[in-house]
Amino acid sequence: MAALINLPHSLLLFLTLLVITTGPKLSECARIFTIVNYCKETIWPAVTPGDNFNGGGFTLKPGQTIVFSAPVGWSGRIWARTGCNFDRNGNGSCQTGGCGTSYKCSASGKPPASLAEFTLATVDFYDVSLVDGFNVPLAVTPIHGRGNCSVAGCDSDLRPICPTELAVKGNGGRNVACRSACDVFNTDEYCCRGVYGNPVTCQPTFYSKKFKQACPAAYSYAYDDPTSIFTCSGTDYVVSFCSSRKKPVCTYHNKKLMCGGSTGLRAAVGKWGMMVLALIITTALSNVW
Rank of each mutant, 00 (worst) to 15 (best):
Arg31Gln: 09
Arg31Glu: 09
Ile32His: 10
Phe33Asp: 06
Phe33Lys: 01
Thr34Asn: 04
Thr34Ser: 15
Thr34Val: 13
Ile35Thr: 01
Ile35Asn: 04
Asn37Lys: 14
Tyr38Asp: 09
Cys39Thr: 03
Cys39Arg: 09
Cys39Leu: 03
Lys40His: 09
Glu41Tyr: 06
Glu41Ser: 13
Ile43Trp: 07
Trp44Ser: 06
Trp44Cys: 02
Trp44Thr: 04
Thr48Ala: 11
Pro49Cys: 03
Gly50Thr: 05
Gly50Pro: 10
Gly50Tyr: 04
Asp51Gly: 03
Asn52Gln: 10
Asn52Glu: 11
Asn54Lys: 13
Gly55Pro: 11
Gly56Gln: 11
Gly56Cys: 13
Gly56Phe: 10
Gly57Pro: 10
Gly57Tyr: 02
Gly57Glu: 07
Phe58Leu: 14
Phe58Pro: 07
Thr59Phe: 00
Lys61His: 15
Lys61Pro: 00
Lys61Thr: 10
Gly63Pro: 02
Thr65Gly: 04
Ser69Thr: 12
Ala70Tyr: 03
Ala70Lys: 00
Ala70Met: 01
Pro71Phe: 08
Pro71Arg: 01
Val72Phe: 00
Val72Ile: 15
Gly73Pro: 06
Trp74Asn: 06
Trp74Thr: 02
Ser75Trp: 04
Ser75Met: 07
Ser75Val: 05
Gly76Ser: 02
Gly76Pro: 04
Arg77Leu: 00
Arg77Met: 07
Ile78Val: 15
Ile78Pro: 05
Trp79Phe: 07
Trp79Ile: 03
Ala80Asn: 08
Ala80Trp: 02
Ala80Leu: 03
Arg81His: 10
Thr82Cys: 12
Gly83Val: 13
Gly83Trp: 13
Gly83Lys: 06
Cys84Pro: 03
Asn85Cys: 05
Phe86His: 01
Phe86Tyr: 15
Arg88Ser: 15
Asn89Gly: 15
Asn89Arg: 14
Gly90Trp: 04
Gly90Asp: 10
Asn91Gln: 15
Gly92Leu: 10
Ser93Val: 10
Cys94His: 07
Gln95Phe: 08
Gln95Leu: 15
Gly97Met: 07
Gly97Trp: 09
Gly98Tyr: 07
Gly98Ser: 12
Cys99Trp: 05
Cys99Ser: 10
Cys99Tyr: 07
Gly100Trp: 05
Gly100Ser: 07
Thr101Lys: 13
Thr101Met: 13
Thr101Pro: 03
Ser102Arg: 14
Ser106Leu: 11
Ala107Arg: 12
Ala107Thr: 14
Ala107His: 05
Gly109Pro: 01
Gly109Cys: 03
Lys110Trp: 00
Pro111Phe: 11
Pro112Ala: 03
Pro112Asn: 09
Ala113Met: 11
Ser114Cys: 05
Ser114His: 02
Leu115Asp: 01
Glu117Ile: 09
Phe118Thr: 04
Phe118Ala: 02
